[in-house]
Amino acid sequence: MTTVTDESLQTLRDALGPLKDREQVAARLLEASAKHSFDPDTELDWDAGIEDGKWFWPPELVSLYDTPLWRKMSEEQRMDLARHEAASLASLGIWFEIILMQLLVRHIYDKSVTSKHVRYALTEIADECRHSMMFARMIDWGGGPAYPVPRRYHNLARVLKTISTTPGSFAATLLGEEILDWMQRLTFPDERVQSLVRGVTRIHVVEEARHVRYAREELRRQMVTAPPWERRLTRLNCGEAARVFSVCFVNPQVYENVGLDRHEAVAQVKASGHRAEVMQTGAKRLTDFFDDIGVLNGVGRRLWKSSGLLA
């Protein structure tokens, strides 16, 4: 069996160009973390009250936006739905980040504890701990309930994160980070949105940019060096994760909690051209990257198309 070293990786390429040195990438990310990390407990004004007339999420990103049901809703009901969807997305984010932390710990378990690569992974885990607590606190601040994913998907994630190989772990990481990141980049500068929610999304966007870089560089490395069976498994696991992600993105209980018929609301979201465009646009940067490095080959592409995240 041939061992692939960091030195030999300098001669390896993928469709995006030469692979970058793992330790150099980690060193730059550690430097950025030292300069641009936040403590949400002190950075944000948790004592601030809810601002009248402001949204918890940009209306264009609310699942029912521009549907017949949306047009029948009062402005107050629309804003309440946005509040509940923000709580649902924060709950989803916590679920994904808890999974991500477990995958990162597995990734570094057999690696040198003195390497910068491992040190950055531990830095990212610390970031994700703060993010999860921040999201939970935002849910509580907004007066919304937490929205756990359905039990069957909660348990399916146990299987996926148990059998996931290293490339599968980083592919799932990017799935959980990049679509929400795209939405949050639209949220934090939006003056229609609650100031505290904008602050939460700003912190998350700044720190997640490093996490995305780390995951992308490592996934590129893995898709070049992993054996064929592992690359095939990555395509399968990532495609299934995309399907679960799209189903769980907004908990349908939010519709009942604002006085809507759950089944009618879900049907209109599924039929919404605007919603399909939002989700596919949010995923496009990620799906383009996955396409470039071979994650969407074969069954992976079919599963992503079935998820609605790929046109």
Rank of each mutant, 00 (worst) to 15 (best):
Q102H: 10
D181F: 14
S115R: 10
L233I: 15
G300Q: 10
M223D: 05
R192E: 13
Y109D: 09
S115N: 08
T162L: 01
Q253L: 01
R119L: 09
G300F: 13
V299Y: 14
D292K: 15
M133R: 15
T114E: 13
S306F: 11
Q194W: 15
R185M: 12
E240Y: 14
R210I: 02
T281Q: 11
T5C: 00
P59V: 05
E75V: 15
G168Y: 11
K72T: 11
L260Y: 12
R262L: 07
V254G: 02
V118Q: 06
S88I: 04
S74F: 15
W182D: 07
R285G: 10
R231L: 03
D261L: 06
V193C: 00
R130E: 05
W304H: 04
R158P: 01
R83S: 02
V113Q: 07
S91K: 10
H131G: 01
I139M: 05
D110V: 12
S112E: 15
R185F: 09
T2H: 11
D66A: 08
V247R: 07
I94A: 05
E128K: 05
E264I: 15
T42P: 01
R262H: 12
Y147S: 02
L104W: 13
Q280H: 05
W95Y: 14
F170N: 00
D292A: 13
K284F: 02
R130G: 00
G239P: 02
R221S: 00
A171M: 04
V295E: 01
A15W: 10
A209D: 09
R243I: 11
L156F: 12
G176Y: 06
Y147V: 03
H84R: 12
S88T: 10
V205C: 08
V25E: 04
P228V: 12
A209P: 06
V250K: 02
P145C: 01
V113K: 08
A86H: 05
E23W: 10
D6P: 08
A271W: 14
